[in-house]
Amino acid sequence: MSPKHLLSIDDLGRDWIEEILRLTDSFAEVSARPIPKVPALRGKNIAWLFYEDSTRTRLSFETAAKRLSADTMNFSVSSSSVNKGESLRDTCLTISAMGVDAIVVRHKSAGVPWQIAKWIDASIINAGDGWHQHPTQALLDCYTLTQKFGSLDGRHIAIVGDIKHSRVARSDIAAFTALGAEVTIVAPQTLMPPSLEGWNCKVSHDLDAVLPTVDAVYLLRMQLERQQEALVPSLREYTAGYGLTDERLEHLGANTLIMHPGPMNRGVEISQKAADDPRSAVTQQVANGVSVRMAVLFLLLGNNGSDSHPNAPRPNDQGPNEGIL
C-alpha cells in the first residue's frame, strides 16, 4: 500500500525512499522533454498552506504539480482570513470543504502536519514543521548524492552548522543513515541540540579533522535571524571555525560533494568560491527538488486506487486494488 501522507522520513524506511528515488529518474526525464508536462494528476487539487516564508520549496512544489497537470490553490497567510483570527483547524476545514486531494503545509510549530492529517481526509505533505522535519528536502538530497555516488552504503557525510534549529539536519540524518551512509554532525556546542539521545550519528566540534574523511559536506544555513540569542560570539568566529572557507576548499577531496539547502549566506557558512566550485551541487539540488517532488506527489496522489475515484468503474480483470508493494 503506498503511503497516504509524507510527514516524516521515519515513516518511509529504506524501501520507500529507494522507490521514490527510482521514480524520480522517470520524472527527471519528463522535466527534460520539449513539453515537460504529463497528464498523470489531471483533476487533482493541491493546496499550499505556508505559514512560514519559502521561495524554493514552494516554487518547486508548484512547478512539480503543474508538470503533473494538477490544479493548485494558493494560500498565503499574509492575505488570508488568518489575519482575522481564523484558527488553523478552521482554515484547514475550509480548504478541505472546497475539495482538495493534498495539502502541502509549512508551519513554524513542530507536529502541525500530523494534527492536520487527523482533521481532514486529504494527503498531507510536510514542507517543514519548525525544527522538526523537512522530508522532501532530505529526499532531494539523497537523490543528489545517489546521482554522484550510486549507492550511499558506507559513504560518510558531514552535516555542518546550526544543527539545533535545523529540520533539514533532522530529516537528512534519518534519510542518509536509512540508505546506509554514516553521518557526522559538526557544530559548536551552542548550536547542537540539547540532547543527542537517539540521534543516529557521530558528533564532532572540529571541522578540519572531519573534512578529509567525508564524501560530502553539507553546510546548513546560519540562521542569522537567531543571532540575538548570541549562540556564537560573532559570525566571523563562526566562519573561521565552521565555514567552508577558501582555505578549507583547497584541501577538500577532488570528489567531495558540497551541498547546501539554501538560501546561502555567502561568506558565512560557505565562501563565494566554494558556492560556485565545480564540486558544489547546490543548483543540482534545486533542479532535483522539482523531480523528487513530482515523484512524491505522484506516489501519494496517483495510487489511491478506487479511494480517489469513488465512481470509477472497477474492471474485474484488473486484479486487487491495493496500493503497491
Partner: peptide
C-alpha cells in the same frame, strides 16, 4: 517509452513508471 504517466487508469489501479523513457531526437 514508458507510458505509465499517460495512462487513463491512474487512480483506478496502481500505475507506476517501470523504466525511464529515452527518445533520441526531436
Amino acid at each position: 517509452i514508458d507510458v505509465a504517466l499517460h495512462r487513463d487508469d491512474i487512480g483506478i489501479r496502481p500505475v507506476m513508471p517501470e523504466e525511464v523513457t529515452s527518445i533520441p531526437c526531436d
